[in-house]
Write a protein that binds this DNA or RNA. Sequence first.
DNA 1: AGTATATCCGACTATTTCAGTCAAGTTTAT
DNA 2: ATAAACTTGACTGAAATAGTCGGATATACT
Lengths: 157, 157
Amino acid sequence: MKLSTKGRYAVMAMADLAYHCNGSPVTLAAVAERQEISLSYLEQLFGKLRRGGLVKSVRGPGGGYMLSRDASLLRVSDIILAVNEHIKTTRCADGGSSGCQTDKSRCLTHDLWRELSNQIFLYLSSVSLADICEGRVLGTSGLFFNGGRTERTTAAQ
Amino acid sequence: MKLSTKGRYAVMAMADLAYHCNGSPVTLAAVAERQEISLSYLEQLFGKLRRGGLVKSVRGPGGGYMLSRDASLLRVSDIILAVNEHIKTTRCADGGSSGCQTDKSRCLTHDLWRELSNQIFLYLSSVSLADICEGRVLGTSGLFFNGGRTERTTAAQ
DNA sequence: AGTATATCCGACTATTTCAGTCAAGTTTAT
DNA sequence: ATAAACTTGACTGAAATAGTCGGATATACT
C-alpha cells in the first residue's frame, strides 16, 4: 500500500465526486477547479479509476463521471489501489519464504513490514467515501478501528 | 510518516545491530554483508542515526556502532523519523487550518490523511527493536484491533 | 611513528516516481 | 454539423530515491 499525493489526489477527487453528485455526471473540469488539481492529471487518474470499476463515465455533452456505486460502498483502499499499481514491500519473495533462510536476522523486519502494510490497508478499508463526505473520519479518541463503522453509516443521502 | 525502502533498510540494519550486539561495537561492513545493503549507503544512514542519537559510534580499529540504549527502548518510529527528514502530508498548512476554508469538500480528505499518518505512527511506535529481534511483531498486544478482528496471531506465544 | 581499521563527510550519478502537459482522437446531445 | 465532453498515448521537468566515490579523520596496535 503506497501512500503519496497521487493517491490523495484520487481520494480528494472521488470525495468531490461523491460530495457534488446529485444524480447527474460531474465533469472533471469542475472537480479540477474545486480541488485545484490539473485537469490533465485528473484525466490520467480517472482513466485508472474507470478501468478499476470505481467510476462510470458518460461521454458527450452533459457527460462526466459518476461513482459506480454508493459512496458508502467505495472504500479508500479501493481508490488507492486503483491508481497506484501495487508495489512489493519486501525485497525477498513475498510470502513464499523462498529466499531469506540464509540469515535469521535478515528477514526479521519482513514480518513487521507485512504487518504494517496490513494495518494500513485495514484502516483505509474501514473508511468509505461516505465517511469522508460526512466528516466521519476522526473521533474515537484513542481507540481506532472500532469495527463495523462503515457498514453502519449507510450513506445518509 | 514516510515509508520507503530507506526506512526499511535503516530498521533492518538496526535490528541487525541489536541482534548481533554483545557488548562490543558492530562494524557496518558486517551489517552490510549480512543484510546485503551497500556499505556506503549504510554509512549515509548511520550518519543520520548517530546524529539522531539512536546509535553510538566507536572509531578506529575494533570500532563500529552500538545501540545508544536498550533495544526495548528503541522504537521503529524513532528509526524511520531519524532517516527520513519529515515531510508534510497535506498541501494546505498543516494543523493551522489556515487555508482550505474556501471549499468545504476540498479539505475533506485532510482529516483522513492526518488520521492515517497518526495510525501508522502509533503502530510503529508500539514496536521496539527488541520486539523485532524476538519475533514479537504480529499480534501487537491489542493496541490495535482490540475488537477481536486480528486477534492473537500467536507469534510469540 | 606508522599503519591498518574503522567511522565520517560531501559531492556525485543513475533510476524511478510524481505531477503535469500536449496533441490528438472518440462519443454523443443538440 | 458542431461542440461538449470523455479517451488515449506520448512526452516533459522536477523531485526523491538508491547508491557510488573519494577522501578526511580518529584510534588501536604494533
